[in-house]
Design a protein around this nucleic acid. Sequence first.
DNA 1: CACGGCATGTAACAAGTTACATGATTGG
DNA 2: CCAATCATGTAACTTGTTACATGCCGTG
Lengths: 180, 180
Amino acid sequence: MALEHALLVSLSEQPASGLELNRRFERSIGRFWQATHQQIYRVLTRMEAAGLVASHTVEQHGTANKKVYRVTPAGTTFLSTWLAEPAEPEPIRSDLAVKMRGASFGDIERVLDVIERAAEEHRQRLENFRAMCARNYPDPSALSGLELDQYLVLRGGILGEESYVAGLREYLTAHGRETP
Amino acid sequence: MALEHALLVSLSEQPASGLELNRRFERSIGRFWQATHQQIYRVLTRMEAAGLVASHTVEQHGTANKKVYRVTPAGTTFLSTWLAEPAEPEPIRSDLAVKMRGASFGDIERVLDVIERAAEEHRQRLENFRAMCARNYPDPSALSGLELDQYLVLRGGILGEESYVAGLREYLTAHGRETP
DNA sequence: CACGGCATGTAACAAGTTACATGATTGG
DNA sequence: CCAATCATGTAACTTGTTACATGCCGTG
């Protein structure tokens, strides 16, 4: 499980409540780790029981109270240990690749429609990433530490999306579909 | 669940037993879908109960008998329907990205070692893919149908690995590590 | 006071992993 | 006979998803 570690990284950057973490995951962190709020709550509860994080309730004038979590020293140690462990290769699971490979067992034109639509979605996501990159990191050479790492992970996301889109275009072109 | 669909694609190409499917997944199909033999057996059992595949036992002179599965007409319809359904964006989960982003909360040099090692593994996987591509598809322009799709999915894997390695190198370079 | 947004959660399920069990046959 | 390989499976566990429940508060 690495949702634990992703939460520790995010909370190390800045303490937050469950829903705030969920929003962060939807926005920036979601590029490399996705999670629903239910799972975030469950894991936070478990981590608090294990002493990796601690919470305190914050009264809010406008709306409901929230439980803000921060990383404990034990949590920092735990994260630091995990960071130095070798990462085993991540399992690959791509619905789209299964569909491409199985296309001849279905209606090829409809599969191509599916691929085309996916390519369009990923092109938009790529534009999104590029815009974020240009907006948040106008001068990458000036970055260091935490910000540099955030920038580089975003760069990795951009490279990944570029190759993903390129692969889908190659598929569509080989099957005689024009790509914009 | 899409292991079901991956199995149907593989069995449509060629009937097979559970362990044979497992070997195929380790070799070629494993590029886009990974599964353990336990899970394959479980899913095959469920699919047979649902009428998507049928099995018959094959006596083998040398060793234990095996159960060979083939796709039923109901299975073909099921697969064809799924192929035409839009694919929702796949959840992204990358341990390595979490480590890169969290590097400043641990020992940066040891994190760089981890990244370097991962980069080396992926470089090897990339070489592997390229060799398979050159060996199995010496003349891509002559391909069509099933073989063309197999080639294109492999191409997608190559593009993905190339960008993955490029991202890791960018990270290492930005942190002052020489990359070979 | 009903509604929508914020905030936290429970319950049931689906999917995937890890560890172990079983039996048959071939080669040393 | 013992170890290795092929082949199929069970059980317990972890992880992630889906659907729903609850309460607070300010606005119209």
